[in-house]
Nucleic acid binder design. Structure first.
Lengths: 202, 202
DNA sequence: GGTCAGCGTTAACCCAGGTTAATGCGTGGT
DNA sequence: ACCACGCATTAACCTGGGTTAACGCTGACC
């Protein structure tokens, strides 16, 4: 069974009609770390479903550095919303952060199924709801947390991602440089050692 | 005609069936600057449509300061996605940033219409699409732009909002303190004066 | 086994923005 | 007319993270 089917039917809470239309349009893709799924600025109206591994979505700035917008791991899905709009193009790039395998579905197929079946339309709406919900949380973190708090929250909430990506990528997600991340980790460790002394040593 | 109808039918590109169900559930609300629409952490599954004025959505941190998540002006709509989910509650507060008037619609009504009419379901999906799209842009700005760049982009892209809200609110949106915003504005002005000298003086 | 490249860490220096505080300016209340 | 309050600005000082550079480690490729 495809990862896509599992993910969407879990969302729908039911089996989805006309599934064969998705099945026949679906393509599977395997990626080595660093391999590119798509680059920013291209016409690319498709939705990805992650079967295994971790995908990172990155914004590249004019001066060459790349900030990690989000990670997606198995069971997750993503797309550049900008690229799904008519005439739109991708607003970020997507790369494998570790060996990964994804399934690709043209958005047009999903739209057509949505126009044909209420259950599909509802499922698509829910998918956007979830997507918006995640963005909302990310936005809140970027607005209200310090770099150190963002780091702590990320490693606590996403241990399964942390163990598979580089420090550099984590830094990119926390929106600091790898150097600063190293410092923050050292700071935390130092503090923990310090508090240990308070409680335990004579 | 209600602002809500105008906004939704522009989205749908057509007139929406069973409109009277919305009409009878819809409430209008007028607000003075600083007046509160809803606070964070309450059960509040409704969608707002802005008829006039500017609403600011803010995240308040434990230590008392408030960062502006977004502004909505006439023709716009918003909701706390977290509060629309079953059992959910608002993840931010909303206040009038200037005299404003909004319309409130229970999300349940919209959901029911969505389940009944494909056109409604499609319109709701589009609304979430737009909402997600805006979040995506905001996230990109926070990740890739400097404070000064965020300020410049904001005043260029939203002149109609800028003229109606305080510097404090703008600073909250740019994610800096009012003091820092003052400095940035002075810096920009100084640079402009400087470049004027280059070109014009003997 | 040797070399090379990329990653993570640490140190030194720099700077943008946070913090605090003082000043001046509307605006509303009495 | 007065006062009080909140907003915007400016100055002085502090700090967290950016930048650059050096070092060690590991893993890929000859």
């Amino acid at each position: 069974m495809s990862a896509t089917k599992e993910i969407l039917e879990r969302l729908a809470g039911d089996s989805l009609p006309d599934w064969h239309l998705v099945e026949s349009a679906l393509r599977r893709k395997t990626l080595m770390p660093g391999e590119c799924l798509f680059l920013v600025g291209i016409v690319h109206p498709v939705v990805y479903f992650v079967e295994a591994g971790v995908i990172k979505m990155v914004y590249e700035t004019y001066d060459g550095d790349a900030w990690v917008k989000a990670f997606a791991e198995e069971g997750g899905f993503f797309a550049s919303l900008a690229a799904l709009a008519p005439e739109g193009s991708t607003s970020f790039s997507a790369l494998a952060a570790c060996p990964a395998s994804v399934e690709v579905v043209p958005y047009k197929i999903l739209q057509q199924l949505g126009d044909r079946h209420p259950l599909w339309q509802r499922t698509l709406r829910q998918a956007f709801e979830i997507y918006g919900f995640r963005k909302e949380a990310r936005e809140r973190d970027l607005l209200t947390l310090s770099a150190e708090e963002r780091y702590m929250r990320f490693i606590n909430d996403n241990p399964s991602i942390v163990e598979r990506v580089t420090e550099k990528d984590i830094a990119g997600y926390v929106r600091i440089t790898p150097v600063a991340l190293s410092r923050i980790k050292a700071r935390i460790k130092r503090r923990q050692a310090g508090s240990g002394l308070h409680g335990g040593e004579p």
